[in-house]
Design a protein around this nucleic acid. Structure first.
Lengths: 149, 149
DNA sequence: CGCTTGCCTTCGTGTTACACGAAGGTCTTA
DNA sequence: TAAGACCTTCGTGTAACACGAAGGCAAGCG
């Protein structure tokens, strides 16, 4: 049985965050002792890991709560639970693609700065060059993929 | 010369966001007409794309502001600007690795749910099975990589 | 001439997921 | 007896806007 402090050092979550999660019902197996002190068993630590994991991958607290509540309802919610994970997986894949774009973009940007430093390219971000250039590093920036109009 | 509405439809940013950015000084080339109306030329549209781009990759507004201010100071800030992009590139790569982990994790989770549905694995998230199992899907969740103690 | 439309401003609230500190309580241990 | 660890509630702050309201100005239309 672990206290908040111990759970914090095990999971890497802050004590604040852990209290926050328990109060929101994200650790269904948590117990309290006779002095109202939070006590975490292995199962509760696992829930904390799970919450941390889902949250880091971009799932909002409310959805995590929803998922956990479904878990507590048992077998009947099996399909819905797997659907949540499937959909969230798609979301994560989209995020991954985004991340790749960003990395590529920044590599181009760094390369461009190397060219500029070497004098092989003009520094189009420098206002002193704007009049002649007319275009800044815009070519390196993404345009909106699908204008939200 | 584009108005806020037009800039919004071009960049995919909301009008709110665009006013927010211009007020923060993130669009240094913006002009106003005699009636105080914001007017965006091609250069300003490019700045908007740039801001959108950096922000999406996780750079906080304040850092973007810093970068833009450096740009405005011209050649003398070349090194510092390239350093910012290099460091942010590293950040983006770290994010990319994270994203890969999340995708892998969720794929495992989905697979596990398929196994459960097929009856080949027990549903360890179901409280009805907790007494026998003692462990939930914890094995599928990440543990803290480096406990923040 | 008034009306609508579109832009502007400031103000104020809500959001998410906490961080942080203060005040005040309880229990255990040195 | 006092320090230390846990608890509670309260209140503020953060980032990056979203959203709406109130109030103002200018252009175009019938």
């Amino acid at each position: 049985m672990y206290t908040v402090k111990e759970a914090s050092s095990i999971t890497g979550l802050t004590e604040h965050a852990i209290r926050f999660y328990t109060d929101k019902g994200l650790v269904p197996t948590i117990k309290r002792n006779e002095h109202n002190v939070r006590l975490f068993d292995e199962m509760s630590i696992n829930w904390l890991h799970g919450v941390r994991c889902l949250k880091q991958s971009g799932m909002p607290i409310e959805s995590i709560k929803r998922y956990i509540d479904l878990c507590l309802q048992g077998e009947a919610t099996l399909f819905e639970r797997s659907e949540i994970m499937r959909q969230h997986g798609e979301f994560a894949r989209a995020q991954l693609e985004e991340a790749k774009r960003h990395v590529r973009h920044l590599e181009e940007k760094v390369k461009l700065y190397e060219e500029i430093s070497a004098g092989r390219q003009p520094d189009t971000m420098n206002p002193g060059n704007w009049e002649e250039m007319q275009v800044m590093h815009g070519d390196v920036f993404y345009k909106a993929t699908s204008p939200t109009t």
